[in-house]
Simulated assay, not measured.
Amino acid sequence: MSEQTPRINARYLEKFVNHTVRIVGKVTELYGDSAKIDASGTINLILTRECHMTVGNGVELVGKVQPTGDVKVLSSWDLGPDVDYNIADAVVDATHRYKDLFYDV
C-alpha cells in the first residue's frame, strides 16, 4: 500500500507535522531553493532541484510538513495560470469532513 497523502491547505499544517501531504496553491514567490504559495494562507516551501514552478501559476505538490511549518517538496506539478482554487478548497474540506474515507492520521 502506498503512503497516504491527505489533501491540506494552510489551515491544516499544524495537524500534519512530520506527515506527507498533498497541497494545491498559487505560487506567490520564488527564491532559488525556497518558495511561497497561497493555499488558503501562506505556506513556505523547501524546494529540490527537480521543482519547476512559475510565479502566478498554480502548483500541486506532495511534500512533508516540517516542525517549523515549512513543507519540504518531494514532487510537484505546474498547473498553469487557470486554476479554480475554490474547487481545491472544497476538496480539502471534504477530505477532512469525511477523513475516515481518505486518511487515518
Rank of each mutant, 00 (worst) to 15 (best):
M1W: 07
Q4F: 15
P6K: 10
R7W: 00
I8M: 03
A10F: 08
E14V: 00
E14R: 14
V17P: 03
N18K: 15
N18E: 15
V21Q: 05
V21N: 02
V24Y: 04
E29G: 00
Y31I: 01
G32R: 11
D33W: 08
K36D: 00
K36T: 04
K36M: 07
S40N: 13
G41S: 11
G41H: 09
N44D: 04
L45S: 07
L45C: 13
I46T: 11
I46R: 14
L47G: 01
T48W: 06
C51I: 02
G56V: 05
G56Y: 09
N57A: 05
N57Y: 05
E60C: 07
L61A: 03
G63T: 01
K64G: 01
Q66E: 14
P67G: 15
P67C: 12
P67Q: 14
P67I: 12
T68Y: 13
V71A: 08
K72M: 06
L74E: 10
L74C: 01
S75T: 06
S76I: 02
S76H: 03
W77I: 01
W77L: 03
D78H: 03
G80N: 02
G80F: 01
D82M: 09
V83I: 07
D84L: 02
D84S: 03
Y85D: 02
I87A: 05
A88Y: 04
D89F: 13
V91L: 15
V92Q: 04
D93T: 08
D93G: 02
D93I: 09
T95Q: 15
H96I: 04
K99D: 08
D100E: 15
L101K: 08
L101D: 13
L101C: 14
L101I: 10
Y103H: 15
D104R: 14
V105M: 01
